[in-house]
Computed example of a mutant assay.
Amino acid sequence: MASPITILKNEEQLYKASNIQDAARFMANHLNISKLKLYDPIERGYVYNIPYYVEEDEYVFFAPEAVAAKRRVEMEERGHKNARRVWLIPANPNDYDLELAFQRYDTIDWRRSYNYENGDLLFIYVSGHIKQVRYKAEVVQGYIDLSDNTYK
């Protein structure tokens, strides 16, 4: 079954592909690179809303939500290399009041130590006197420019 994929470049529609092979072929011609290098970014792009950057240009890939949801389930059940990753990360309550932050805000900007990507799951281990995994969060934006950070 063909799964249409819309490609945006810097928020403008660039191409409407009939499937991932067509999207990879178009992008390979557009960027003058091997289409084999594009399957993973396209798949992670439409499944987890992860943009693909080439220099200053941002490429975004969309598929119908039902198609993306079905592929997400398939990848996660099979442990596919493009499935979202699961992280265990520490949080020191003496450095940051995570409990208060989760109570007050819908979204928290987190200093990244690793390459978290959209869709990745973070289990947050609270150290200090608590010593427990207390929170589960999903990455909704893998990289935030420091100037965009609202709460420091």
Results as ranks from 00 to 15, higher is better:
41 P>D: 03
143 Y>R: 13
2 A>S: 04
107 T>C: 04
36 L>G: 11
136 K>I: 13
64 P>F: 00
94 N>K: 14
50 I>W: 01
111 R>I: 09
19 N>C: 02
27 M>S: 04
99 E>F: 15
113 S>R: 09
140 V>N: 03
16 K>D: 02
80 H>F: 08
83 A>I: 09
110 W>H: 05
118 N>Q: 10
123 F>Q: 10
122 L>T: 08
101 A>R: 06
45 G>P: 02
67 V>C: 02
91 A>L: 11
35 K>L: 09
73 V>Y: 05
26 F>G: 03
51 P>I: 01
143 Y>F: 14
42 I>V: 15
28 A>I: 04
113 S>W: 03
129 H>F: 08
3 S>W: 01
67 V>R: 00
56 E>S: 11
124 I>Y: 03
126 V>H: 03
46 Y>N: 00
62 F>A: 02
103 Q>P: 01
79 G>I: 12
79 G>R: 06
27 M>I: 10
146 L>R: 08
152 K>M: 07
139 V>M: 09
125 Y>V: 10
111 R>Q: 11
90 P>S: 14
68 A>H: 02
99 E>Q: 11
35 K>V: 05
4 P>L: 04
16 K>C: 05
20 I>V: 15
72 R>L: 03
38 L>K: 04
76 E>K: 08
83 A>D: 07
120 D>F: 06
15 Y>H: 07
92 N>S: 11
19 N>A: 01
84 R>S: 13
117 E>M: 09
146 L>P: 10
87 W>P: 11
138 E>I: 14
19 N>E: 01
62 F>E: 08
75 M>K: 02
7 I>C: 03
132 Q>R: 12
114 Y>R: 13
47 V>P: 00
